[in-house]
């Protein structure tokens, strides 16, 4: 299988196999009109199987969202056909409007303008807690 190399854009690599489509949807890539390739179950020396997303356009990247979905992923920034930056993604300390608090007693349930903020509470368990009501969510 061959996918053209990209000139100006990003490659999200080393995505845990099975999470590529989720990330593709959460990043809103289905709504863009730029060239995007989602490769699933690609052979990987490091992971065995992995997913890859290639975007051939210099779109803004939500690193927090990528870190929340798959902290093991890497993001390669490509400019004029060359790799200019390689970022190892980690779990963000704070998630802002990435996920929404589902606690009906939380202040965010009735104040629509309020940002939904989750603080990393347990790195080992990959747990986040709402800063307002402490409702827990685990990583996807």
């Amino acid at each position: 299988m061959t996918v053209d190399s990209i000139r100006d854009g990003i490659v999200i690599d080393h995505i845990t196999a099975g999470l590529g489509r989720k990330l593709y949807n959460l990043l809103g890539l289905e709504n863009t009109n730029v060239p995007v390739a989602l490769l699933t179950n690609v052979t990987s020396v490091k992971l065995g199987r992995k997913d890859i997303i290639k975007v051939d356009a210099p779109i803004p990247v939500d690193y927090d969202l990528i870190g929340y979905v798959d902290p093991g992923a890497t993001v390669n920034i490509i400019r004029e056909g060359k790799l200019v930056e390689k970022k190892q993604i980690d779990m963000p300390e704070m998630l802002v409007n990435v996920i929404h608090c589902k606690n009906p007693r939380c202040i965010t349930s009735c104040e629509q303008e309020l940002a939904h903020k989750f603080r990393l509470s347990n790195r080992e368990k990959k747990e986040y807690r709402c800063i307002y009501c402490e409702t827990k969510v685990a990583l996807l």
Partner: peptide, 23 residues
């Protein structure tokens, strides 16, 4: 009655806020 309401108030007030119970 809502959890976290006092934190929202504290983040926006210019005087000290004491939480007297949030849900």
């Amino acid at each position: 009655p809502k959890e976290g309401a006092a934190l929202v108030a504290a983040n926006n007030a210019s005087v000290p806020v004491i939480n007297a119970g949030d849900g």
